[in-house]
Simulated assay, not measured.
Amino acid sequence: MKAFEWTGVFPALTTKFNSQEELDLPLFGKNLQAQVAGGVNGIILGGSLGEASTITEGEKESLVKFSLEQLEGAIPVVLNIAEGSTREAVRQAELAQAWGADGLMLLPPMRYKADDRETTAFFRSVAQSTDLPIMLYNNPVDYKIEITLEMFESLIEEKNITAVKESTRDVSNVTRLVNRFGNRLKILCGVDTLALEELVLGADGWVAGLVCAFPAETVTIYRLVKAGKIAEALKIYRWFLPLLELDLHPKLVQYIKLAEQATGIGSEHVRAPRLILEGAERARILKIIQDGIAKRPQL
């Protein structure tokens, strides 16, 4: 894989397990092929949706190498880094490069609410440790640390910090970033329920969640917006919204895995402490998914 553009749809892929909580690479491969057939532009491994906090270093290596082998350079393979210490984040970046990953998604320090100076130093240390292109994940809602415009101003001195996953929940931030930095930073929407809005405002891509179960619909919305066919995109997006809202819940992993199972490209197996949904909650979520499948639009 040569240098790539942070544009288009990048699924934050779920990590597939069997009933014994072991990595299920054949099922992961089935979903990966569905993503490719749907037209995605890259994949992200080991994110929040990939159960980052429960997968081992060896499993990350297996996922990266398996994906590279399956994809044969067709689209980039990006590995997420979510670590508590700068030293460990740097080590993970070096491992990702050694394993052959094409890029990194980088979260701020985990478990400690670093201030602006500390957060900037953390990102800079990782960037300087690798040649890989980096997308910074700006999600102050979930991770309590915001990457401000002033911080980006400093961080773009690092040439390989080239994109931002925009998850502030403030769609105006897309315009602020474009006004300040032009095309220097690619902007990818990281919130499924705001994707159409942010793409219309000029976001370059979409780090998507429900794409794991509905790849073709996700890619179609992206392509229609970029072709200026907003009314056509909106029709699909309105159908999609009840499903996209599953991405906003603390149990997004369980909800999206249930959707993958319902569409035939995944299973609902998760790794503890997460548990498979049951009872009224499972019935309620499954109804949302089945209603969506029943009304699935013709593309």
Rank of each mutant, 00 (worst) to 15 (best):
I265S: 02
A216D: 08
E22Q: 15
L244Q: 13
Y222V: 05
L106S: 02
K2L: 14
A37D: 14
L252M: 15
A93E: 01
V90Y: 02
L241N: 09
E88I: 07
A52S: 14
K30V: 10
G47K: 04
T56H: 08
E22K: 13
G73N: 07
V141I: 12
L104E: 05
A213Q: 02
P109W: 09
A294T: 10
L27K: 11
I43Y: 10
L275E: 13
A52K: 01
K257H: 12
V219Q: 08
A3K: 13
I44L: 14
V219T: 08
T14W: 03
P242T: 08
K60W: 04
R238I: 10
A52C: 11
L244E: 14
L45F: 08
G84E: 08
L277R: 07
A96P: 05
Y143V: 15
V64D: 02
S125G: 11
N41K: 09
A259K: 01
R296W: 03
P133S: 09
K257S: 11
L68C: 03
Y137M: 00
G29Y: 05
L248M: 15
A127D: 03
T54C: 12
P109M: 09
T54A: 15
H249A: 11
T218M: 08
F10T: 00
L201P: 01
T130K: 02
M151K: 04
L23A: 09
V191G: 01
F66D: 01
S125H: 12
L45T: 03
V171K: 03
F28Y: 15
L79T: 06
N183L: 12
T130I: 10
N160W: 06
K229N: 10
L104C: 10
H269F: 14
R184A: 13
V178A: 01
L23R: 03
G50W: 02
E232N: 11
A127F: 05
D204C: 11
Y112E: 07
F122E: 01
L248D: 09
L188I: 14
D247C: 13
V270F: 04
K165R: 10
Q298T: 14
Q290G: 09
R124N: 04
T263S: 06
V225R: 00
F122W: 07
G182T: 00
G202T: 13
F17A: 08
G292R: 00
E83G: 03
N160D: 07
I44S: 04
L49G: 01
Y112H: 11
F28M: 07
A262V: 06
T168L: 02
D24A: 09
F214I: 01
I289Q: 05
K226R: 15
N173F: 14
E245P: 00
R238A: 02
E51Y: 01
R176M: 12
A233S: 07
T263D: 02
Y222C: 05
K229Q: 12
L104S: 08
F152K: 00
E88S: 11
L248G: 09
Y237L: 03
G8E: 06
E22R: 12
